[in-house]
Amino acid sequence: MSTVVVLAPIIVANWPVITAVVGAAVGSLGFAVVRGEETSQQRGETTTREEIEIDNSEILTSDTGFEEEIVVQREGVRAIFSRDARGVLRVCMEGRGTSHAELRRWGQELIDRVTQQYAYHRIVTELKARNMTIVDEQVEEDHTVKIRVRSW
C-alpha cells in the first residue's frame, strides 16, 4: 500500500465526446440512441417530464456542426441529453404513465452511468497517452469497473 486517492469526476468535454460517451453508457440500462424522431411534446402527447441538471459538468462549445442533443429511449421512456445556455449538461426524461419519482430515478441512473463512462474514457485515454499500459480490466456484477495500469 502507498497512496489511496478518491476522486469525483467533473465532465468537461465537447459535444462529440459527450455523444460517444452517452452512446456507450446507456446500453447497459436497456436504452438505445434514437435519431430523427419527434419528441412526445412535439407530437402533442401527454407525458410526464422531469429535468435533471448534471452537476460538475461543462460542455465546451464546438463548431463541428454536430447537433447538441442526443435522444435515448427504452420502452416508452425517453431521455434527451442537451447542453443548456450556460454550458451545463442536462437530461430531460419523458414517459407515459410514469411518475416523476420514477423518471427522476431512471434519469439519475443514466447520469451515473454516463459519468462512469466519461471517467473511464478520460482515464484510459490520458494514461495511454503517457505510455502507461492497461494490464487488466474487469467489470464486476454491480458494474464497478476495475483497471490495473502499469508504468515502467
Partner: peptide
C-alpha cells in the same frame, strides 16, 4: 514496476491506489 489499481464505481466515483510506488512519486501519480 509501478502500478495503479483504479476502481470506477457505477456512479462514476474513482478510487485509485498506487502499488510499488514509494516516496513523492506516489503524490505525482
Amino acid at each position: 514496476k509501478e502500478e495503479l489499481e483504479i476502481e470506477i464505481s457505477p456512479s462514476g466515483k474513482v478510487t485509485a491506489r498506487t502499488l510499488g510506488v514509494k516516496g513523492p512519486r506516489c503524490l505525482e501519480l
